[in-house]
């Protein structure tokens, strides 16, 4: 049977909105309404669906909201400045090398199920990003604004890459459970350990590709602009 294809309009609204660089929150609201009406939901039903989903997903922002008070207080008392001066004492440190070490630690600890070791509000902003920026500054005192932003963006990227491609080789991770459930519904029985093992080649490739890019980052940062 032919499914209702009209809800695809909601996807079109999202793509168009982001391409035209409209306000993201408005784009999301517009996409919600387009999708709802395209699926023939009456207005009250749509509002109720949105509301139920809004309450149901409110655990999501907690991961980055809960640590803010402690991190903010420590920043006021010089945590970022301390991280910068600590890395400045390591003479061989460069932004790239520091981030390669962080990538390895993040990926391996995530593979062992320790996903909490890291994260943007609790590790990247107060510690890793200031350290990487300070290491880059030691090598090139005339670091431009653009280079500075690049170091920060790469720090956030390194945290994401390490987390994503590490956690999936941990057997008890949610994604593995999800895959097992879906395959079982189709009558295929798979050992979670095998899925974790088949993730390893990609996880290693992710490390090699990203580490090579971090290595190249140092060369870009050494450039005078």
């Amino acid at each position: 049977m032919h499914p209702n294809l009209w809800p695809l309009l909601g996807v079109a609204v999202i793509i168009l909105g982001f391409l035209l660089r409209l306000h993201p929150v408005l784009v999301v609201a517009a996409a919600c309404f387009t999708t709802g009406f395209a699926a023939f939901m009456p207005l009250d039903h749509l509002l109720a669906s949105l509301g139920t989903a809004f309450i149901k997903t409110r655990n999501l922002p907690m991961i980055y909201l809960l640590p803010l008070a402690a991190i903010g207080l420590l920043e006021r008392f010089g945590l970022r400045e301390y991280a910068q001066s600590a890395i400045a004492r390591v003479r061989s440190a460069t932004a790239g090398r520091l981030l390669i070490v962080y990538l390895a630690v993040r990926e391996i600890s995530a593979a062992l199920g320790l996903t909490a070791l890291g994260g943007h509000p609790s590790m990247v902003r107060p510690l890793v990003a200031p350290m990487a920026e300070s290491a880059a500054e030691q090598r090139n005192p005339k670091l431009s604004e653009e280079q500075r932003y690049r170091v920060r963006a790469m720090t956030a990227a390194t945290d994401n890459v390490g987390l994503f491609f590490g956690e999936d080789i941990f057997v008890a991770f949610g994604a593995i459970v999800l895959m097992q459930t879906i395959l079982r519904a189709e009558g295929i029985e798979v050992d979670p350990l095998h899925m974790a093992l088949w993730g390893i080649p990609t996880a290693i490739s992710a490390f090699i590709i990203h580490a090579w890019r971090l290595h190249r980052l140092d060369r870009y940062l050494a450039r005078q602009q």
Partner: peptide
């Protein structure tokens, strides 16, 4: 948070 809501709505709308 709002994107997560949209994701659930996408699922509901097929």
């Amino acid at each position: 948070h709002m994107l997560a809501v949209l994701g659930l709505l996408f699922t509901e709308a097929g």
